[in-house]
Design a protein around this nucleic acid. Sequence first.
DNA 1: CTCACCTTTATACCGTTAGTCTATTAACAT
DNA 2: ATGTTAATAGACTAACGGTATAAAGGTGAG
Lengths: 286, 286
Amino acid sequence: MNPKKQQILSAAYELFINKGYNSSSIQDILDEANVSKGTFYNYFGSKAECLMAIMESIGSEIRQQRMAAAVGMPPNNPDVLAEQLYIRIKLNLEKNLFSLYESIFYSQDPELKSFSIKQYSLEMEWISSRIVDVFGKEAAPYALENAAFVHGYVQQLIHLWRLLSTEEVPAAKLSSFVIRRLQATIALQIAAKDTFIGNMKLPLTTSADSISIEELAPMLELYAAKLKNQKNTQQLVHFLSAELAEESPRKALVESVLTTLANDKQIESELSIMIEQVWKHLGDLT
Amino acid sequence: MNPKKQQILSAAYELFINKGYNSSSIQDILDEANVSKGTFYNYFGSKAECLMAIMESIGSEIRQQRMAAAVGMPPNNPDVLAEQLYIRIKLNLEKNLFSLYESIFYSQDPELKSFSIKQYSLEMEWISSRIVDVFGKEAAPYALENAAFVHGYVQQLIHLWRLLSTEEVPAAKLSSFVIRRLQATIALQIAAKDTFIGNMKLPLTTSADSISIEELAPMLELYAAKLKNQKNTQQLVHFLSAELAEESPRKALVESVLTTLANDKQIESELSIMIEQVWKHLGDLT
DNA sequence: CTCACCTTTATACCGTTAGTCTATTAACAT
DNA sequence: ATGTTAATAGACTAACGGTATAAAGGTGAG
């Protein structure tokens, strides 16, 4: 990544999480980054675009850490889900992201709005699929609304905690509490067959989930070709692409490479999404 | 209320719920209300103050309707709670309030921030006390976190529904669903003695709850004196104040007056809070 | 070295914003 | 009728996001 761009991003990041998005002016960013207005608009079409770039990078950080937490663990282990939930809570708290999320959530800017809808849908989708992993197929009709349950409960409890106490939010305790409540309530809900959302699906479900291994290989290859300054990552992605293109990719090798990639903090959003996709297909390999 | 002020308020209200708070400029309000800038700043110190006045009036509308729904019903009836929850959902949906709430929730303006914290705390406190009404004393240690559960779940399900469907959110179905889930989960939680918040209390609990009947009577009298253009309301409030100042206020009469007041849509925030306080003490009378 | 090309800088500018200030008008008591 | 006070209109300011442009700086090819 271009150093000037990086400079702008980290200055903006610092300002956004400290002063909030709306209260940080572009001039503030320029002063903080020691960069002129022309440079800023050379890299970002607008202030909103700059915010989205920051959100993307945080999203990929969360994806990476969540994959790293799941490596080598059975997918139906609720403690892994709690750990993965904890990762988002921890990052949100550390980086003060709540104000950022809300700035864009109810923004009038249509670009920001659709961006936030996409981010939100991805998270709901992710929690849903993990709920099915943990609680089995019979939980599927209730997965989406329980994803909303988890997400909303976490959010509210953090907010409540901050009103009640000056101490730091106990993220680990919070995450395991909510997962315990989820376990309790979802069992009852399945038994009672009580549902609000019913069998409706999020719009992106069908499209995003249907990326096959056959499609992933060339996408990865294309991405690898663009990597210039990260030789190590390039080698790994290139190998992964080639291996997935084979008749029967070797599971152990793919998993090993994925593990390494999942622990790489430099990885950008686009790649981390593809890695996650490969990860989901790991069970199909031998 | 001054007609110009009312004119500004309803214009601002219309704009805020249609275009959102941040996207509605003061100039828009002035044009819509056919009023000049000087007039606006004569009545409101800032745009934020105008928003808060609107939120106050909505808050009192909700309080009024909730009281009206509870009149003559046993407080431990979960259907009443569902109905009261439905009232907020319905009003929020009708008046498109979500964007308003969120504009102020994560606002940088310290005045707006503390205002929203107060509003939020009041709602949590209210749900908590209703949970104790319905589920009994043994639910008390879990009431606050389950208020967060209810609030967060409703919010998320509305958001999710809107992503999934173009149809209107089925508010009544949503409210009864969430109350059913609450019933299921809170029983298990009490049995498991599993808590996150513990016995922490909201800061305002002690102060707001401790207003006694002895204190309420003169407060009401003071308010009645200020009422000029609403003779009927003035008579009722005046009588209420006098009755509460008696040795043993007559329950049936107090309840009757409260019922009438609860169904009056003109009542302002300050009074509706006091009426709610009296309502809470109704059980102590004979 | 020169030239062409791209990035970066600095700054002037635009329309719009929230909020201030002042001159004028309207209301009303004396 | 007159003096005082509150309500009103609208010009004005500073800051905002974003655009435009001209000058300065750096780099690689010929």
